[in-house]
Simulated assay, not measured.
Amino acid sequence: MLVLGLTGNIGCGKSSLSNIFIKNNISIIDADIISRQIFEDKLILKQVFDTFGESIKNDDGTLNRKLLGEIVFNDDDKLIKLNKLTHPIIREKILSKIHEASIKGEEIVVLDAALLIEGNFLELVDKILVITCDEAVQIERIKNRDNSSKEQALSRIKSQMIQEEKSKYGDYIIDNSGTLIELEEKANKFIKYMKENWCG
């Protein structure tokens, strides 16, 4: 089974690309969904509140992810602290899902993870696909999606590894500065390439 790591920075269209894979009957392990689900664990939640304070707690006792995001995206040390708390659990859940896909006899499984490189998840994948786009396009997408200002969008972008650096890890790069139709064409070309060259 081929484990493909899909990564790319915020606003580059990773989710859109994942949806195209799903349409092509390729299974996705979404690290972002896993990272949300782990906060349903009361022990993890307590550790996060103890580390970052009660201000990030909603009235019903759940985590206010937006407020936590604002704290960690503007402070590298706090981001490192959060990652140290969450990454080991996320890794464990990802490995479990890869194992499930293998048992099912899947030919390809995609690990969709924005922090594939930064989170030290590289050893979990066989090949890496990086999706990129022009920064101006990236900013507009973040503003429209999150109803945020240009400054907030730039803050999110700057909290991540720069695209040029991330691209160095890629076995294949897709530029998604254009339309969804163009992305679909590039994705279909990539899927054909992947099956011909990487699948055994």
Rank of each mutant, 00 (worst) to 15 (best):
V3T: 10
G5Y: 01
T7G: 05
N9A: 13
G11K: 02
C12Y: 08
L17D: 01
S18H: 02
N19R: 14
N24D: 13
N24W: 09
N25Q: 15
N25Y: 11
I26M: 09
I26K: 10
I28D: 01
I28N: 01
I28W: 02
I29G: 00
I29E: 01
I29R: 00
D30F: 12
A31D: 04
D32F: 01
D32C: 01
I33L: 10
I34W: 01
S35M: 01
S35W: 00
F39C: 06
F39E: 02
K42G: 04
K42E: 12
L43I: 14
I44S: 00
L45C: 07
K46A: 07
D50A: 11
T51D: 10
T51I: 04
G53D: 06
L63Q: 03
K66C: 12
L68Q: 09
G69D: 05
E70Y: 09
E70S: 07
I71F: 01
V72H: 04
F73R: 08
F73S: 13
D76S: 15
D76G: 11
D77N: 15
D77Y: 14
D77M: 14
D77P: 03
K78V: 05
K78A: 07
I80A: 14
L82V: 05
L82F: 08
L85S: 03
L85A: 04
T86Y: 05
P88G: 07
P88M: 07
P88R: 05
P88A: 13
I89K: 09
R91N: 09
E92Y: 11
K93R: 14
S96K: 13
H99F: 15
H99D: 15
A101W: 04
I103H: 05
K104R: 15
G105Y: 06
G105M: 07
E106H: 10
E106P: 02
E106K: 10
D112F: 06
D112N: 06
A113H: 02
A113T: 04
A114T: 11
L115C: 10
N120H: 10
F121E: 00
F121K: 02
E123T: 13
V125C: 03
I128R: 01
L129V: 07
V130A: 04
V130W: 00
E135G: 12
E135Q: 14
A136P: 00
A136W: 11
A136I: 12
V137R: 03
V137Y: 03
I139Y: 00
E140T: 06
N144W: 13
R145T: 12
R145A: 12
D146E: 13
N147D: 04
N147P: 03
N147G: 08
S148V: 06
K150T: 14
E151N: 11
E151L: 12
A153W: 00
L154S: 03
S155I: 15
S159R: 03
I162H: 13
I174T: 00
D175F: 05
D175P: 03
N176G: 06
N176H: 05
N176P: 05
G178D: 12
I181C: 15
E182N: 12
E182R: 09
L183F: 07
L183P: 03
E185N: 06
A187Q: 08
K189R: 10
K189G: 07
K189Q: 09
K189Y: 10
K189H: 15
K192E: 12
K192T: 14
K192P: 03
K192H: 14
K195F: 11
K195P: 08
E196L: 12
W198L: 09
W198Y: 14
G200Y: 12
